[in-house]
Design a protein around this nucleic acid. Sequence first.
DNA 1: CGCTTAATTGAACATACTCAAAATTTGTGG
DNA 2: CCACAAATTTTGAGTATGTTCAATTAAGCG
Lengths: 230, 230
Amino acid sequence: MNHTCEDCKNEGQLFGCLNDTEKRQLTAAKGNNFYKKGQVIFYEGNHPQSLFCVYEGKVKLSKLCENGKETVMRFATNGDIIGYRALLSGGVYKATATALEDSVICQIPKPAFMEMLTNSSDLSLATMKLLSEDLLDSEKRLNMVSQIPGLERIAITLLLLKKKFGTEEDGKTLAVNLRRREIGDIAGLATETTIRTLAKLCDQNYIELNQKKIKLLNLDGLVQLARIAD
Amino acid sequence: MNHTCEDCKNEGQLFGCLNDTEKRQLTAAKGNNFYKKGQVIFYEGNHPQSLFCVYEGKVKLSKLCENGKETVMRFATNGDIIGYRALLSGGVYKATATALEDSVICQIPKPAFMEMLTNSSDLSLATMKLLSEDLLDSEKRLNMVSQIPGLERIAITLLLLKKKFGTEEDGKTLAVNLRRREIGDIAGLATETTIRTLAKLCDQNYIELNQKKIKLLNLDGLVQLARIAD
DNA sequence: CGCTTAATTGAACATACTCAAAATTTGTGG
DNA sequence: CCACAAATTTTGAGTATGTTCAATTAAGCG
């Protein structure tokens, strides 16, 4: 079935500013798809035809470079939009979007979106706000990766994951399962270094590790470590 | 004197999409100021009241972290807009803008800009395009800094400077004078490492150094080195 | 259960950083 | 225009940090 934008549980996000008529138009124009964990939504280098909106799930956006290394650029979860930079800048996708878990993702054809943008200055302003915030995030991470030692980078990374995906009921365990390698790809560290650094944080009781589950025991301490950045 | 936007020599940039009436309004609303080399246009943490547009000159946008290290986030030159992310995202400036040389910079009050954005979907689309491109640049650099060795990073940095500021009449010498430290702040390398890496590129005849002047002798070679990224 | 993938550990190595000192360059006042 | 002071660049040596490679153990999945 095709979820309707009028009743979308992810309101308050980008399309929250649309009125009912506009939302109906959006519902009519869009499709939605199911992606299994690990499936690719689009590849770096593809030509963008659509905008994607995560109805439910978790998505990783990453970039590969020639030496085989991957950098995680960004994550998306419920209500987040992906694939809009390429669409707005007019080029190809500069990152690959992969489902981190089974996800339902709506797909809005480029012409429909562009038309809505032209007709709704509210939507335009909201999109600009979104882009600005993404830009600030990206620049923050640029600063982090280039200037900050490993332990602090992992601390920052864990806080970023908490902010993006939240926690389980205990309020401490990160509500996302990532591989060690993926955590390293966010922090800009080799997998082995990531493992050792996580172990160090564990020794010092900042966190507790249980397979892929990461529990933030000493949040204040982590924030303190992360404070070097910002 | 206040330069008029109708006759601005930097057309084709963001405000190029405005019609004559809108340009007249813009001229009426804006002011312009002269900044001496080294002067700060705004500081990280300041509350944004205006948008800035470089009429003529060169500006560096950088971020400082608590350990005293600086990261150059972006440059701006003739026709480029600065200070728009904070304005659009609603927060404070996240970077400090410093004139790299004597510069003339126009200043557009926030309300005037926001009104123009609301009234011109062309301007909105152009702004989104700009933001998207900045975002792509930033993510490209994120990838570079976290995954690529020093020599290649400096190569990429030199190409970035060429793209942004162009060259002198010889077509090879970068048309911008930066300190070694500032080059390092772009590449994410310590000053000493930057010096040694530049020296290595010099030994291998990729470049020629003459004080702050940097001549790109073997452009293809540099592009080749930079290709690891992309 | 067996196979594949991921996590972990160790050791050698590479890279870049720090600190300190010397050589240059730049800026400024006389 | 010169001299001096301040800032920047350069060089060297030692060190820290993180990477790589290889081997082992554990976990995930059909």
